[in-house]
Design a protein around this nucleic acid. Structure first.
Length: 460
RNA sequence: UGUAGGGUAGCUGAACUGGUCCAGCGCUCGCCUGUUAAGCGAGAGGAUGUGGGUUCGAGUCCCACCCCUACAGCCA
């Protein structure tokens, strides 16, 4: 295996004179009269290592196998490069081709491919410059998220992936069953869990349990939605981060969400600058300006009621009318964050009837302590709320949803949390891949997750 | 799921109102060359997404289906 300090990323920074062994996959080969040049990459860096093989070092039939996509080990001396474009290069002493890649058949060429072409090549696209940068950023973002919470004493909770509860309002669910194929109707009582079970649509309810024991907690795991959504920002399987805090109201919740987003951007700007530069160059010229704006400017904070008033006097012909009581549409959210304020906007206090049952009712009797964080280009990146901690109020809300299939007895434990040591608490959910889109400038969510699951697509 | 576009060589695109499908890149071969999106020359490579229909003749027109993309809804 490649040992620490020997990744291509490290070799590029080493001083000439060192004897090293580089391993990786060939991007391109160029032949000169007396030398061959090989661009080698092991996924650690957006920059390739240039390997120089003097003519005659290895037989022509070996050179012929060094084509785009082939896997190599090269041992030799790092030397100062006489050419432009790199400080050092690897002068090969011994070279091994582990796996060739027939150039007549290998799908990746040394030219640019567009993202749609690469999508069906899920087993190979990780080797490209673009996906190398994207997935290094993804790794750095995950690390940044854990760092943010760990630094603040939050406990990482593993919420269950298989769930029996239906977090109302979070969309339709995938059923989990061991029912054999060919059985027309499955008897639920005979099924594996003896009850209906689903893939989780949210870890929030379980996170609340832990928040009322550890005060500050967060989840970070896969989430599933069986919606037939076909857009550049929806997946059937995606990752979500859900912090949940006891002794926390909506104001604290907003403060944390803002600090959270800013911290992520700061850390990735610090850790992945070369990758972001690559992505900015090829995909989003405004990338750095957008990221630096998010870090620098205080987020705008307005109420839903204020947002409605602003939109109504915007002098626009909205496709969907703006009136108090209906949810904000994409066009409205975009106007607020991209045109009116030109920075992230937190909208709070939405009408009760358009939000989930667990959100805390405000004193006005009409709104709940909900918040959505909107960012330019992406739209809603965070949704959260202060939770209803008053037992009787919560019970009445659940009963009021009985016509929509909510059963009070299914929420027995959720209600008990309000009977035993309850306290005001709040939290939110952030779509990991939405944040990835914002950070990388990628326009389609399918290009920021290794193996996207969307309606009709579960390959790889 | 709705609306609008679109599926032509390995890739990106072209082909006027129906008339033998082109080019660049990639690939193969040769030449040149401390190259770096290398350069020059030659060559190979196509049942135009699938199935029907109209027509003397369909990449082009009609119908159905599949897939892709954008926008919208659902949301993160």
């Amino acid at each position: 295996m490649i040992q620490p300090g020997n990744y291509v990323r490290d070799l590029l920074k080493r001083a000439p004179g060192d004897t090293v062994c580089a391993r990786g996959w060939v991007k391109t080969r160029r032949d000169g009269k007396s030398v061959h040049f090989i661009q080698l990459n092991d996924g650690s860096s957006p920059t390739d290592l240039q390997v120089v093989v003097e003519a005659g070092l290895v037989p022509p039939e070996v050179i012929a196998r060094i084509t785009t996509g082939a896997c190599l080990s090269v041992e030799g001396e790092l030397v100062a490069s006489p050419g432009k474009g790199q400080a050092v290069e690897l002068k090969a002493r011994t070279l091994t081709v582990h796996g060739a890649a027939d150039p007549e058949e290998y799908p990746l060429q040394k030219k640019k491919h567009n993202l749609e072409t690469l999508r069906p090549l899920g087993h190979l696209r990780a080797r490209t410059n673009t996906f190398g940068a994207v997935f290094r950023v993804r790794n750095a973002l995950a690390r940044a998220i854990h760092h943010f919470f760990q630094e603040r004493g939050f406990i990482y909770v593993h919420a269950p992936v298989i769930s029996a509860s239906d977090a109302e309002g979070a969309g339709s669910m995938f059923t989990v069953t061991t029912c054999g194929t060919g059985i027309p109707a499955c008897d639920v009582s005979q099924d594996f869990f003896g009850r209906r079970t689903y893939l989780t649509v949210s870890g929030q309810l379980e996170a609340e349990i832990f928040a009322l024991a550890f005060a500050n907690v967060y989840t970070f795991g896969p989430t599933f939605r069986a919606e037939n959504s076909n857009t550049p920002r929806h997946l059937a399987e995606f990752y979500m981060i859900e912090p949940e805090m006891a002794f926390c109201d909506l104001k604290d919740n907003q403060d944390l969400a803002e600090a959270f987003l800013k911290s992520q951007v700061e850390q990735v700007l610090r850790d992945c600058r070369p990758d972001l530069e690559f992505l900015a160059k090829w995909y989003e010229p405004d990338l750095f300006r957008n990221l630096e704006t998010l870090v620098a400017a205080p987020f705008e904070r307005i109420t839903y009621t204020e947002a409605v008033a602003l939109l109504q006097k915007a002098g626009r012909n909205w496709e969907f009318p703006v009136d108090w009581g209906s949810d904000l549409q994409s066009e409205h959210e975009r106007h607020l964050t991209e045109e009116l304020f030109r920075k992230p906007v937190i909208v709070v206090d939405y009408p009760q009837q358009i939000k989930a049952f667990y959100m805390r009712s405000n004193d006005d009797g009409k709104t709940v302590a909900a918040m959505d964080v909107l960012v330019p280009r992406i739209g809603e990146i965070i949704g959260g709320s202060q939770r209803e901690e008053r037992h009787d109020v919560l019970r009445d809300k659940i009963r009021a949803h009985a016509d929509r299939g909510m059963k009070e007895e299914s929420y027995w434990w959720y209600l008990e949390l309000r009977r035993f040591g309850g306290v005001e608490h709040a939290g939110f959910g952030m779509g990991f891949e939405r944040m990835m889109m914002y950070l990388t400038g990628m326009k389609n969510i399918r290009d920021v997750i290794p193996f996207p699951r969307t309606p009709g697509n579960a390959e790889f």
